[in-house]
């Protein structure tokens, strides 16, 4: 095989892509098969998996490619879910006419719009700082949303809010679990493709360059701040979209889903799967769901092995599972 040095990218993992295709095909076929063979429970598990993977892919855009350790991404999941719950609540029980609606497009627009706006405002502040300040500030802003929702009793406060009616779209019903899974799965594939294009584009190169060497970026004439902010907004909007799907999936939303420990789990998924690997978050989400389902079936104390695994993977498994797999298949660093 001849390679063209002009377009060659020695950093790209090659062996891994074949595995990823197998992964995506499995995710397309296995859950419906399980559903039709009388295991609807597994369809639910896979729906959750795909939504978590989607959220993790959005986090990976800033964390993996941009090197921005955002510890507040669960807030976007929550904002997206409440963008479904709040309009439905008002459409059912009155009040707040301007947003009261069952219309799915309204929910979708709100989920993406509110998340993007929140990312823009908080990102503009966080991104002025580096390193550990950035981690803690994103965390604090995430927790701010958590406390704000807890304090609003109209939407159930701590106890959460039941979504009585799923988002309504013409022609399809999200009440059908297979339809919902199809929507989530196709969304994941679409977002993967989107992130793939973004990270390979000029914009993506700037994002990677800013992670690798910000000083050098400035010296060649690129102001990283604005590009990072745009990436942060895209990531927030995508994660808000995942929240929109999550709200429609669980039909019950509570502030607990945006607690900072949820953000920690999202980070775990990205890092375990392998940051800056396009398909890493999916691998991470699969492992996370398996751990959760299997370990929690054995013991109520499943957080202990989970926590130990987290510590272990940080200490010994650098580059995540995707990185380990690359090493096994012989890609030199």
């Amino acid at each position: 095989m001849t390679t063209d040095p002009i377009t060659e990218n020695p950093g790209a993992p090659k062996s891994f892509n074949r595995f990823a295709i197998v992964l995506l095909v499995t995710l397309a076929l296995l859950p419906p098969a399980l559903f039709y063979s009388g295991n609807p429970f597994w369809l639910d598990v896979f729906t959750r998996l795909v939504i978590l993977a989607l959220a993790a892919v959005s986090l990976n855009l800033v964390l993996g490619y941009g090197g921005l350790v955002s510890f507040g991404h669960a807030a976007y999941l929550g904002l997206g879910a409440y963008a479904v719950g709040v309009p439905v609540y008002h459409a059912t029980y009155g009040g707040f006419e301007s947003i009261a609606s069952y219309n799915g497009w309204v929910h979708l627009g709100l989920a993406i719009g509110v998340s993007a706006l929140f990312a823009l405002i908080t990102g503009a502040i966080c991104l002025r700082t580096r390193g550990v300040n950035f981690i803690m500030i994103t965390m604090a802003f995430g927790q701010m949303v958590f406390y704000a929702i807890v304090s609003i009793e109209t939407y159930g406060g701590d106890d959460g809010l039941t979504i009585d009616v799923r988002s309504e779209f013409p022609g399809i019903s999200l009440d059908n679990p297979l339809t919902l899974y199809a929507l989530c799965y196709l969304s994941l594939v679409a977002v993967l493709y989107l992130v793939h294009r973004i990270t390979g584009s000029r914009f993506g190169m700037v994002l990677r360059g800013a992670r690798a060497n910000e000083q050098r970026m400035r010296a060649i004439g690129i102001d990283c701040y604005r590009y990072r902010l745009v990436a942060f907004v895209i990531s927030g909007a995508l994660c808000g979209y995942a929240g929109f799907l999550l709200g429609n999936f669980t039909t019950f939303i509570s502030p607990e889903m945006m607690d900072w420990t949820r953000s920690g789990e999202l980070m775990f998924i990205v890092i375990l799967g392998g940051a800056a690997y396009l398909y890493g978050p999916i691998v991470g989400a699969i492992v996370f769901i398996i751990l959760e389902e299997v370990l929690s079936g054995y013991t109520v104390y499943w957080h202990l092995p989970f926590g130990l695994l987290l510590i272990f993977s940080v200490l010994f498994l650098r580059g995540g599972l995707s990185g380990a797999m690359d090493k096994l298949t012989g890609r030199s660093q």
Partner: peptide, 19 residues
């Protein structure tokens, strides 16, 4: 290690200690 590793490992510690 970098701060990301600090954060992840000590997050794991929280889960362990809580349990």
């Amino acid at each position: 290690r970098d701060h990301l590793d600090h954060v992840l490992a000590t997050f794991g510690l929280i889960l362990c200690l809580d349990t």
